[in-house]
Computed example of a mutant assay.
Amino acid sequence: MPTYDDDLRLAHVLADAVEPTTTGRFLADDLVVETKPDLTPVSDADRAVEELIRAQLKRTRPRDAVIGEEFENTGHGPRQWIIDPIDGTKNYVRGVPIWATLIGLVVDGEPALGLVAAPALGRRWWAAAGSGAWTGRSITSARRMQVSQVSEVADASISFGDLEEFTRTGRREQALALMDDCWRMRAYGDFWSHMLVAEGAIDGAPEAALAVHDMAALAPIVTEAGGRFSGLDGKDGIWSGNALSSNGLLHDDLLNRLTPCD
């Protein structure tokens, strides 16, 4: 199995490099926010962070492709860095501290590495294939993560994504029924739901609509913590346009419960 130690160190360097921008613009009175054609917000910080990451990758990994949220894809080849400069922009622009920079590496279509940096929470989460999943403030102050062992939905804590997307994709009634049946329902939101799954703090996190840049960094962290990350169609990985992360024990049951009726 290939190792990604150098790539993981680079991901931390990238996160370090953009943190002054993300934290400096957070709560700034002059933050510029625009609406993109898909009606989602984008701030000047989103664009500045992605430009910084792209520039550094161009210098350090010139042969690798880069896929980001805010700019056109660049490069070709089997190694793809997939970047979300600020996941949780709606939180960011409103002053809610649940947002993060997501840095993922996909090799031959398979998630190989992920780093989630949430400086407003004082936390990072990261993993590489075969190396386990870790959380802390830095590589030198980290603890290994493991998913929970909850095996019944009635005992499970579930974090749900946007109910509107469940409605749009024909899963509203299924989502509401699951909310009723699980032990505890919350919506922690965005990256944080999936990181809580990896930590074992909650047991599952379904989201009915996600882009690949929302998922590339998350999948390896969940799976290296012993969980499972798939689309709601049951296909493992990040290419289904939606996601379910879980401790693995609950995964098939949650998939079945969220299957749209014919």
Rank of each mutant, 00 (worst) to 15 (best):
L105N: 01
P62A: 11
F71L: 10
P119F: 02
R54Y: 03
P78L: 06
V42T: 13
I139H: 13
R137P: 00
I158S: 03
R124D: 09
A133L: 12
R63C: 06
I158G: 03
N91Y: 07
G114H: 05
A156Y: 12
E72G: 15
I103Y: 07
E51T: 15
F71V: 08
I98S: 05
I158Q: 05
K58I: 11
I83V: 10
W99I: 01
G161A: 08
A118T: 12
G136A: 04
I103V: 15
N91M: 05
P62Q: 13
W126H: 10
G77E: 07
I82L: 09
T135L: 03
P111K: 01
D108S: 13
F71G: 00
I158W: 01
V106N: 01
T60W: 14
A127C: 08
L115H: 08
H76V: 12
F160A: 09
A156L: 11
Y92K: 00
A154W: 03
A117Y: 06
D155Q: 15
W99M: 03
I103M: 03
A154K: 10
Q146S: 10
P111N: 07
A154S: 15
E50T: 04
G95T: 02
Q56L: 15
A55R: 14
G122Y: 06
I139V: 15
A100T: 05
A154Y: 02
I67W: 03
I83F: 07
A100Y: 03
D46P: 02
D84T: 12
E72L: 13
S131A: 15
A128G: 13
E152L: 14
V106F: 03
A128Y: 04
R143E: 13
P62L: 12
D46R: 01
E72Y: 07
A129L: 12
W99Q: 02
A120R: 06
F71Y: 13
S151E: 15
I103E: 06
D87T: 01
G122A: 10
F160S: 09
A65G: 14
Q56N: 11
W81I: 08
A127M: 09
E72F: 10
I139C: 11
L102V: 01
M145H: 03
A129I: 04
I83H: 04
I83Q: 00
A142L: 06
E110G: 01
D87A: 07
G130H: 09
R63V: 06
S131F: 09
I82G: 04
P97S: 08
L121K: 10
R79Q: 11
W99V: 01
G109P: 05
P62E: 11
V49C: 06
S131G: 10
G75R: 04
S43L: 06
S159V: 07
I53L: 13
L115M: 11
R124G: 04
R137C: 11
I158N: 04
Q146R: 15
F160R: 12
I83C: 07
V42C: 04
V42W: 00
